[in-house]
């Protein structure tokens, strides 16, 4: 049964990159518990627009937990309090009447605030450009089943491939490290035969790019895997560490 709740919202408002922002308080009245968190912000924005005020800027696209565009830190938790959930899939039934909810953007040196709750995540694009791909030769397509991949390996690669690039790992990491994002990609491609030829080069360039972009260093706090909406495990970080050491110690790649 649906019911309605009233909330006090404290939302980070910031006019643009580099300018000073602050938490503004809003009253969210009569919010249906069937709404998603983003729909709740929609309701507030409608009121703000009617009042002639600037609506809260936030990122969103699919609203079904698959694109990775949404994401804010809600009461200190990336994507809110529910495990394995994106912000667009977080429902208001997880909040109680009278709650105060603080909404902040992802915080990291590598993710600059563009406006309000929107951050620039192009650092992730740079990481994927650095090595998050496999090279494929043109020519006749080979038979789909020509390369055998054990089911467990395919499954494990698929677990890593679930990453939607939302940035919650960076946001929740006490060191603002991107190790889970990079680890998932390196691990996914290192597991599969198609990714093996470029494995050493990939891990080297991706790790170097990650360091250059200003992300912090992982200290195995495990907050990332606890907050990841796709519940990607830090064993993928361990695989990347292995791949990196292997590449550093044995690969011809300098």
């Amino acid at each position: 049964m649906s019911k309605s709740i009233n909330l006090t919202l404290k939302v980070w408002r910031q006019k643009g990159p580099g300018v000073k922002g602050r938490l503004e308080t809003y009253h969210a009245g009569n919010i249906s518990t069937d709404m998603s968190f983003l729909e709740m912000i929609d309701v507030i924005n409608e009121q703000l627009t009617k009042d002639g005020k600037e609506p809260i800027a936030f990122d969103h696209d699919c609203r079904e937990g698959i694109c990775g565009t949404c994401g804010c830190v809600v009461n200190g938790r990336a994507h809110g309090p529910e495990a394995g959930t994106t912000l667009c899939q977080l429902h208001m039934r997880h909040f109680d009447d009278g709650d105060t909810v603080v909404v902040e953007p992802w915080r990291s040196r590598a993710f600059k605030v563009i406006k309000d709750l929107i951050v620039d995540r192009s650092a992730f694009d740079k990481l994927i450009q650095a090595g998050g791909f496999v090279s494929v030769n043109t020519g006749g397509a080979q038979d789909a089943n020509a390369i055998l991949i054990p089911a467990e390996v395919a499954e494990e690669a698929m677990d890593a491939a679930q990453c939607i690039g939302c940035g919650a790992c960076v946001a929740s990491c006490p060191n603002a490290s991107a190790m889970l994002f990079v680890g998932a990609k390196v691990s996914q491609l290192a597991l599969l035969p198609q990714g093996k030829p470029e494995a050493a080069k990939r891990v080297n360039t991706m790790v170097r790019t990650m360091d250059a972009l200003g992300f912090g260093n992982c200290t195995n706090e495990r907050e990332c895997e606890a907050e990841c909406p796709k519940e990607i495990s830090i064993t993928h970080i361990a695989r990347m560490n292995r791949e990196f050491l292997k590449a550093g110690l044995t690969a011809g790649e300098k």
Partner: peptide
């Protein structure tokens, strides 16, 4: 380096269950 990696800190900090007293 890790101190520098988050120049603007969160107003509300909460653990998700990964961090321990030791870590």
């Amino acid at each position: 380096q890790n101190f520098k990696s988050r120049p603007v800190r969160y107003k509300v900090n909460k653990r998700a269950g990964g961090r321990t007293l030791g870590s």
